[in-house]
Amino acid sequence: MKYRIQSYSFLALTWLTLFLLSDTRIHAQEAPQKVFVRMEVDGLSCPFCTYGLEKKLKKIDGAKEVFIDLQAGEATFIVTKDKQPSKEKLEKIVKDAGFVPGKISFSEIKAKKEDER
């Protein structure tokens, strides 16, 4: 009897471990890697003119959390890695909005940070 209970417990634990492992794997595949994009934009001084830049940034496929800081002279947003726009595309967007592009940087957001969000 004791041996049977031990066997069932072992099977149950094995099943649970396998389930949790597979679940984590699925989640890891589902959550795409995200990228934080930071762009220095020269000429940002007037909120009324800035709307054109915000409008164009929001049109980028997958762009989320678009934020423009006039004091810092920069625009930031988050995008998934598979939809990350090129520097050339971002420079064109800034120019079409009537501004001058500066330094553009991309930094990957760690999954842990993503969960915290």
Binding site: D42, S45, L70, G73, G98, V100
Partner: peptide, 9 residues
């Protein structure tokens, strides 16, 4: 003509 810097154009 357009010349821009941080917070100025």
């Amino acid at each position: 003509w357009l010349k821009a810097g941080k917070g100025i154009s």
